[in-house]
Amino acid sequence: MNKISISLNLNGTDRTILVYPNRRVVDLLREDFKLTSVKEGCSEGECGACTVIFNGDAVTTCCMLAGQADQSTIITLEGLAKDGELDLLQQCFLDEGAVQCGYCTPGMILAAKALLLKNQSPTEAQIKLAMSGNLCRCTGYQKIHAAVKSAVVIYKDKMAQGGESID
């Protein structure tokens, strides 16, 4: 088996790596790039724990081969906080008590982030739809939903006061 070269923009930095192709993107991120916020829950695209933002979309990395990451842009939870400052969504998850065991949290925050990158004033229904691919077995959905809603409201206020864009 020949190794393949994968070049991607990972959390804002261009990276190139040689790997065996029989790895999934979740393995590439966790094992090769040591980005262990990416969690494996079900290994079949049913739980959303391994969600990252791939070329702007939320995707489940357990159903992607490493080679699919070539020439892509990927954001993991490690890429959200900038210079020690939490992303608005991270802050809202903290403030709203949206974190319980924490295993679904990275995927939840990234699913919400992928939504907000495309639509900065989503409706409740749009938030629910965007979060519908992520399971929380602790069943803290209400608080998770409240955290995303709260981020939308705070963001709108900031924009009204002439703040910066969400990304």
């Binding site: 049913e46 979309d57 691919g133």
Partner: peptide
């Protein structure tokens, strides 16, 4: 189909 993640792939 599936979920938002699956529909994007």
């Amino acid at each position: 189909v599936g979920s938002p993640q699956i529909r994007s792939l």
